[in-house]
Design a protein around this nucleic acid. Sequence first.
DNA 1: TCATTCCGCTACGATACAGTAGCGTAGCGG
DNA 2: CCGCTACGCTACTGTATCGTAGCGGAATGA
Lengths: 187, 187
Amino acid sequence: MAPDSRVQKSRAAVLAQTYELLTEGGIGGVSIEEVSRRSGVAKTTIYRHWPSKVALLLDACSSIGTPPETPDTGSLAGDLTALTERLAEQLRTARWAAVLPSIIDAAERDPDLAGLHTTLHAEIMEPFTTVTERAQARGELAAGREPADLVAAIAGPLFYRRWFSREPLHDAAIHHIVRDALTRATT
Amino acid sequence: MAPDSRVQKSRAAVLAQTYELLTEGGIGGVSIEEVSRRSGVAKTTIYRHWPSKVALLLDACSSIGTPPETPDTGSLAGDLTALTERLAEQLRTARWAAVLPSIIDAAERDPDLAGLHTTLHAEIMEPFTTVTERAQARGELAAGREPADLVAAIAGPLFYRRWFSREPLHDAAIHHIVRDALTRATT
DNA sequence: TCATTCCGCTACGATACAGTAGCGTAGCGG
DNA sequence: CCGCTACGCTACTGTATCGTAGCGGAATGA
């Protein structure tokens, strides 16, 4: 059974426009009718492929995470610096950065979306935990330091600045954050 | 012109139920019709007091911040510990903790809500900045340390844990966060 | 007491949205 | 070339919402 090219085309167009709408207006900004209008795919066809709106949302969001390769510079400092710079860059420009608050909000109530949130969080932070656990295995972490604490110490201020205090994420601040987290958590 | 008791009663009931709905379903979960239903105040009466839904929302949210007294234990460590414990407690139990993601999301797009977000952030974090700036004036901060950095170093991980990684905010983690932020930022 | 103010009620109009049903057509793959 | 599949279209049902209009009654406070 070869894949029908029509199906692939429809699915791709719908997912693309769903993601588009998602970044523009958050979860609340997505409506099937608008997706249909923009994608040129009939509403009925959308319902032929996804049983409900949530199903479509979950599908569209699943492409968000996709963590890239984890750096391995040999030292925790090098790895974390690279990762943090990339995360900051994503927070500034990546499309999912505008969607995440919406997902966090929805996860506060909807179980399905909570699952999605968990998945996304795991995907986004996966390189950080990998790198940190690797360092722990090498004995680079100070006694009593949990990898999760170190990750929170770095990612926390970044997210805080991006969404809460809305301060700019300039390089100086980023390097401050990484250096501080390292000097107090490493041996 | 004495205040008409009927007006006060209506306004209070509406604001209370709006806040209630807000904590239950976030900004998207509030509808004038539902507020009317629950509060027993007629929808038309609500529109007699607030020109639009956003106006009501802003009004209902304005009671969120209300920062309590700022502690003054004499030392930055004491002040920050007290404040952080209180913030963590609020993040665990306070009703606004369930609403904030919704506001952050809305602020990402709506200018009115962005203004609200700015106000709330200022109110919630005000004690932290007060205490930190006081310490800076006393010369307790290390050279090159901005109060905002210190605040972000403490509040960031807390928020991160509460909304992003959804790890529990136990006392041990809280004290870790405060101690770490202090040891690296003070003289 | 009595005018004023506020209120509740019913009924609107307009819009948007989720999801479904059925028909006829066009394109795919064998 | 032909059958099967997916598609677009129109048309629905049902619901929820915002916001407004107008009437009659009730509380208020002077």
